[in-house]
Design a binder for these strands. Structure first.
Lengths: 187, 187, 187, 187
DNA sequence: GATGAATGAGCTTTCATTCAT
DNA sequence: CATGAATGAAAGCTCATTCAT
């Protein structure tokens, strides 16, 4: 792994463990096993590192969200695939997920970055499924961003409860969550 | 207002505007209009201030959640009251709400504080409504904490989208959100 | 005891326990059980307190040194009386003694205060004994201040060893020390 | 000279000039011509600097004390050599000497450090000379630490008087002092 | 006189950043 | 490229001093 990758990985780890406000350069380069000067070969300052980590995490999430998504599948199948992918990403990559979640509404992340297109155009995919469901009279008529935010919020919230071990997230709970989020949109 | 209140209010404002990592003592006592030493008459260090602000916000939320809640009302009425109160709190007190939301899963907040009882026993009230609905066969059988987290997450997420002006939150959207969160729990 | 006495006693205690550099006003008025403002009714600043404590200790020592001194006694008796008094003062008032010893050569004590006349003119008494002994051919001819410093130093040093419990100071050791200091001056 | 040495030298100078309680980091790094952060590359806090300076001074003294000491010389010669070395050290290195003297009985210096072995085993050398003299019936029977403290105290005290210019310390006075300290131990 | 909350100058300490190696 | 000793601006914090009560 390159030094740059080492630095970014160390940064993500530290943010996860101690929170951004506690992450110092000193901690980063100790954890990453690089000299203090080395960081400046790759990043001009701390904000740049955090933004780069954020960008990478968003790319990763974007790719993950549309995995196994087939436009030919039924609306229900496509909806559940998207929700499952998001949930599975959170289960498999808790550090990335929490980091994205916390910083998406933080003043620390630049505006452009917050509104970046995911690696794949996953947001559009989700929105189009919602709009299609509404057109078919299956989903209630609502501002599509409201619907999007709603089902996204269910997944986020469930994951956070899982992270602090309020409950397990096995196959059965996962199906319940997916089903609930589907129901939440129905007319 | 007492100096202590001034300090806590200034801290909450600054966290909201710039994020915790950007809040310095210098900014706090300038904003609060107190001498630098004054802070140490009330708080031993920055962490103590933040914890105190968190505690106060949680108390405020706790009281707010059970406002107008009448055990005699129908399950539907009681459910909607609780969800509406949470949503309304977020609309009326965005700084408090966002602060609680961000820090509830942050390493910065001590474990005991995270699990503190709200001023009122609001959490138990919500859980009991969920359990009652399940007993009556209205709500799907699920781990009650999962259900709780789910409907809580819907409100949080909707509020965050509202804060960044993805959509308005007028009477009509509010009713849609409440309805969706009710649907999400149905069998 | 008056507030002023309380403050001075607390200061001496604290200097003895922690050293001057660790003594703060806060510690002084907590120990003395007075309000922080009260100190300023008696002393303009910390240096004044320390100087006052020093002065008082020197007065105390001065009185003690000439106790039981009778000009009619033999040279040997008078010499031993003076040396014994100094030693006994150190044994009975370790805090005062150590404080005087440390600060007599410290930049903290003002020059006039260092050279103050003791309450009684004890220094002159000691010097006159030395000069008399030299005139009688009993003591070696030496600069009298050198002799004075020499026998004073023996007592100081012995006391410091005693304070850190290198050895006991009972009647037998005391007599040995007095005898040694007498011998040190002989021709 | 290394930065570390610069810092320690500046600290010793400042303690000598103004006393420990007046020594601030700001003064140290101005005097030592280093950046404020540099100090923390070598010492965790001020106490560590002072302890390091103390240790170094003690090592220096320890080496100095046994210079030119030859076990084959007569008891008298050996005794005078040790006393002369101590006196000469004080004359040549007044800052080191005074610092050691003040702090050897101060609460600021850690217990282990106070009882450290000097660079050379100078303390044992002095004690063995004392014990040998007592065995030969030349020195009076006394607790050896008492004797040690006594002759050590003579030198210290004489030096302090010299530092404040009570008297000169030329060859003649030096011989008188050495002779006196020898006499002080005789039967 | 006595008090102690409030103050801010000045201290200690941290940490992002530089630069010679 | 990689390093880490050195830096100093800015942060956290202490504490002598003031002043309204």
């Amino acid at each position: 792994m390159s030094k740059k990758q080492d630095i970014m990985a160390a940064t993500l780890d530290l943010i996860h463990e101690e929170g951004l406000q506690a992450v110092t350069f000193s901690k980063i380069f100790k954890r990453a096993n690089v000299g203090s000067g080395t960081i400046y070969n790759y990043f001009a300052n701390k904000e740049e590192i955090v933004n780069a980590v954020y960008k990478e995490a968003r790319m990763h999430l974007g790719e993950y969200l549309v995995q196994g998504f087939t436009p030919e599948a039924s609306l229900y199948e496509r909806f559940k695939r998207l929700q499952l992918n998001r949930l599975q990403f959170g289960i498999d990559f808790p550090k990335e997920f929490l980091f994205i979640d916390s910083f998406s509404f933080s003043p620390y992340i630049s505006h452009e970055l917050r509104n970046m297109d995911d690696g794949d155009n996953s947001r559009e995919v989700v929105l189009s499924v919602i709009v299609e469901g509404q057109k078919q009279g299956i989903f209630r008529e609502m501002e599509s961003h409201l619907s999007h935010q709603l089902i996204h919020g269910i997944i986020s919230s469930i994951l956070k409860g899982y992270y602090v071990q309020k409950y397990p997230l096995d196959e059965i709970q996962i199906q319940q969550v997916l089903e609930s989020s589907w129901k939440a949109l129905l007319v």
